[in-house]
Design a protein around this nucleic acid. Structure first.
Lengths: 332, 332
DNA sequence: TTGAAAGCGCTACCAC
DNA sequence: GTGGTAGCGCTTTCAA
């Protein structure tokens, strides 16, 4: 079903059909009626490819993320899709984690979209720069800036400072950090912020992080390593909630009580964190994605636009896992 | 940067450049070298639009889901993306829930993909049929079949039967069901299965479901309503885990102990369920998405292919919320 | 008010 | 081996 068949059926040119369908240009009332009738009868829908090729735009944009497992990325993507869809863009998603040749895949995605958001440690700065160099509107998410690209991240410093103050207030002095700063820019930022907060508070810097992946099993394994250290750390500060939940399991397995024998804190505030009673730092994940989509739109509409950088606020959420509190500080 | 510029630079025709780039057809070694050199220098990447238009395919497929909030859909999409990417397709996502004109959006998506997966109650059977009628390879996910379309769902009957047997074994006789069968085909299936299992076991059928949306706040509200009934139900059977978590909060708020005063069971086994100690039915969400992607591929490759129907197995997961058990039946 | 036609960027067939 | 060229389906300008 092409525009030609419609035109032929009505006995007009394809230009006229196009005008009617798009609602641009002037068309005689009667002609319009006949065209619309044929469109309806033939169930004509213009080919997106033909349209895009002629218009020179895809009306789509993409988001690249490490992987979708874990509620964190899912939420970001939801926020992104919601805004993008509102703005009339289709959304393409691309997970790179654990996949062969992520660079190629990102470059490939770049050929199907008008703009893209790139999250975390998915591809190298070089590839990001390469994509951006083609003139592709690009925004970076939860990732250090590259060149003059728009970048939206979430705060680690303020909440790390709050967290450390809170933990020191509990009287804790021996900390272990679980997570691999090399794995993700987020972890890097979180670890650095944690370390800086500790040092600024006059404490000795923490030992090197116990490196582990970003999931529950890895957290458990790292938790076991941490808790085997002597003297045993009083607090396990974890790169994200899943690692913290793993650490929780490790403690349980060793017969240690949380928080009496060891305190555990996470990062993100995924749904499970509430039920595990995990003290954590809440991330505005939806807002992260929504912001990226909005900025992308701005860049696609206005050619020259000042570079944007924004650090979204996070919130320390105190629950039971970091120590006994006089009253429940968070109920709901 | 088009194929013309590359051709001109090298002094060959675009046909030759195309041959080299695609790796088809015979090209003299020396010519190939010079073309590749130019491609490299000019950073030429063929336009996806031109390519697709000429090839007559998008090399992309789409998945439509009610919304992305809640870990359930996210996991399905992950499974889908993983397989689709492996198969060389880009993935477009579309959330319909709470959006204006979902039909139009789905039809729109259909113009950009070679195949699509449609989940749950996103669009009417009519629209599904309309999409399928265009020849678009389509598979239905967690949704009743429409016409001759491939459909993959998860089992509700067997696990509902197991669940009911287990609950009856606890001595419970008064059940309340929380969730709105009209909201999603999943809920319909779950409620029907629950009801049938109860009746088959010789119990009286449950009262009508307490209708509520699919999230924690709605679950809490419905939980309050349920627990205010007299006589108070002994078990709240919930449409999904989020509703169950809400019901849990409601019980807590009323000062009721779970499971001593009231038992609560959910459906899905999202991550939070483990930490909330929720008895639930585990869904193979990744497998659901992966299966859809695989079937779609089959349909796109082989034109005529027998209709497929599959019901993936689910697993009853017993935790604390359904009653005291002699020993921990699930540790990890 | 309408039509003809020039692209948009590529693939693949047919000649040479 | 290589080039010419006819599509693929649409938008939009220019004429009529």
């Amino acid at each position: 079903m092409t525009i030609y068949e419609v035109a032929q059926r009505v006995g007009v040119s394809i230009a006229t059909v196009s005008r009617v369908v798009r609602g641009h240009g002037e068309v005689a009332k009667e002609t319009r009626r006949r065209v619309l009738e044929a469109v309806e009868e033939l169930q004509f829908r213009p080919s997106r490819l033909g349209q895009s090729l002629a218009e020179g735009r895809h009306a789509a944009n993409g988001i690249v993320f490490p992987d979708l497992s874990g509620p964190y990325y899912a939420e970001v993507i939801l926020g992104y899709e919601e805004v993008a869809a509102e703005l009339g863009s289709s959304v393409l998603i691309l997970a790179t984690h654990g996949r062969a040749d992520p660079d190629r895949k990102v470059l490939d995605l770049a050929r199907r979209v008008d703009g893209m958001a790139i999250m975390g440690r998915t591809v190298s700065d070089g590839v990001v720069a390469q994509v951006a160099a083609t003139g592709m509107p690009t925004v970076l998410l939860a990732r250090p800036p590259v060149g003059e690209l728009d970048t939206v991240t979430t705060d680690s410093d303020a909440s790390a400072r709050e967290l450390v103050a809170h933990l020191l207030g509990h009287g804790y002095r021996r900390f272990a950090y679980l997570g691999d700063p090399a794995e993700s820019p987020d972890v890097t930022a979180r670890y650095d912020a944690f370390r800086a907060a500790l040092v600024d508070a006059g404490s000795p810097p923490p030992r090197a992080p116990l490196r582990c992946a970003f999931d529950v099993p890895a957290g458990r394994e790292a938790g076991q390593r941490a808790l085997a250290r002597s003297p045993r750390p009083q607090v396990l500060v974890c790169a994200n909630d899943e690692v913290a939940l793993g650490a929780l399991a490790a403690a349980q397995q060793l017969g240690l009580s949380v928080p009496d024998d060891v305190a555990i804190v996470g990062w993100d505030d995924v749904m499970a964190a509430r039920y595990a009673g995990l003290t954590t730092v809440r991330q505005p994940m939806r807002a992260l994605g929504a912001t990226a989509a909005r900025w992308l739109q701005d860049r696609m509409v206005v050619s020259r636009f000042p570079v944007r950088r924004e650090v979204l606020q996070t919130q320390l959420v105190i629950r039971e896992s970091c120590g006994q509190h006089p009253v429940d500080m968070e109920v709901s």
